[in-house]
């Protein structure tokens, strides 16, 4: 007697997802459990089958003070999983700074498995206290694409980095493959630990307030990439970063010469890049990309949330390999 509804675990906020490769060669879910306030939904008749799609939701559309979400994800060999959200993850005000709202995710990706996690940004309300820890343990040739971003809050209500505390920590580890051939490195190894701690508590009056220290940025984000399926998108970010115009360089060409050069953008890529650079300048978006121990780390910040979304969406769409490997649904939160 199989219930059509996924089983519930008994601990509040706990969830477990296992993605595996089905016999017909497409990815599907083997286990799929969750408990209030966490909610998971997977469309029963997906329109795309490059990867299995799961919506990560919470009841009421946000996390109430003191909510603890603890999601465990396993991606079996060669399976591809995409996790998205439906709108900003709202973090509601805490009645006391000791009441921490927490979201933890522990992900294990087996050999040649892949996870694409491009959610909407987290939107912490004034007075909220939030900590998020996401730990990804990757076997050989596993791939991860992860976006972690946070906004200044509800601007319509005048919120501007008005929360008490926001902490986001992401770790990528390599681990030995389950059925090891003995040749691979036998211990777990931390590749990247990216942590952002935004705290309204200034420990010294000389220090800028949290809002001032953000320097007008309304959204900050980090994209982490590792593994064969996201190698080309990682290389793309590094190449585009290297191709950025030098800051402080002067353009001595005449307007006519500039126009001629603009027209000479022969390839669509060059045209796209020229447009993107204008958009970056107009929206005051700053970004950087670096290769850290075999992972590509992209950091960006922009005054307007939507500009940040447009930018990351434009980059990922232009490169195209995320859609190719995970399906267009993987990009639904960044469009």
């Amino acid at each position: 007697m199989n219930s059509p509804f996924p089983k519930s675990t008994s601990v509040p906020g706990e969830g477990h997802l296992v993605a595996k490769l089905l016999p017909e060669g497409i990815s599907g879910l083997e286990t799929f459990t969750y408990q209030y306030p966490l909610k998971l939904i997977s469309p029963s008749r997906p329109s795309e089958d490059e990867s299995v799609l799961v919506f990560l939701l919470s009841y009421g559309g946000g996390l109430v003070a003191g909510d603890q979400v603890n999601l465990k994800v396993d991606v079996r060999p060669k399976a591809k999983l995409t996790i998205v959200t439906q709108g900003h993850t709202k973090v509601f005000t805490s009645t006391s700074p000791d009441i921490v709202t927490r979201q933890d995710m522990h992900v294990h990706i087996a050999s040649e498995g892949a996870l694409c996690l491009l959610p909407d940004p987290v939107q912490p309300f004034a007075g909220s206290v939030y900590e998020q820890t996401q730990i990804f343990r990757l076997e050989d040739n596993a791939s991860i694409c992860l976006l972690d971003w946070v906004t200044r809050g509800r601007t319509a209500r005048g919120e501007d980095w008005s929360f008490v505390r926001w902490v986001g920590r992401n770790e990528i580890w390599t681990i030995p493959t389950a059925e090891g051939d003995g040749k691979t490195e036998s211990r777990e190894r931390l590749l990247v630990r990216d942590a952002v701690i935004l705290d309204s508590n200034r420990s010294h009056p000389e220090l800028a307030t949290l809002r001032d220290s953000m320097h007008g940025v309304g959204i900050v984000g980090t994209l982490l990439l590792r593994g064969p399926l996201v190698k080309s998108v990682g290389d793309f970010f590094l190449a585009e970063f290297a191709a950025l115009p030098r800051l402080g360089a002067r353009d001595f060409r005449s307007d006519a010469a500039k126009q001629a050069a603009a027209l000479a953008h022969s390839t669509p890529r060059e045209k796209w890049r020229a447009e993107r650079l204008v958009m970056e300048r107009d929206s005051k978006l700053l970004w950087s990309a670096a290769n850290v121990r075999g992972c590509v780390v992209v950091k960006f910040g922009a005054p307007e949330v939507e500009d940040g979304r447009l930018w990351i969406g434009s980059m990922l769409q232009e490169e195209g390999s995320i859609s190719h490997h995970f399906g267009d649904h993987a990009l639904m939160c960044v469009r």
Partner: peptide, 15 residues
């Protein structure tokens, strides 16, 4: 538990 508390610093640094 160490981490960056001035995110724009990462942007300036990286750029």
């Amino acid at each position: 538990k160490a981490g960056q508390n001035v995110p724009v610093m990462d942007l300036w640094f990286g750029r």
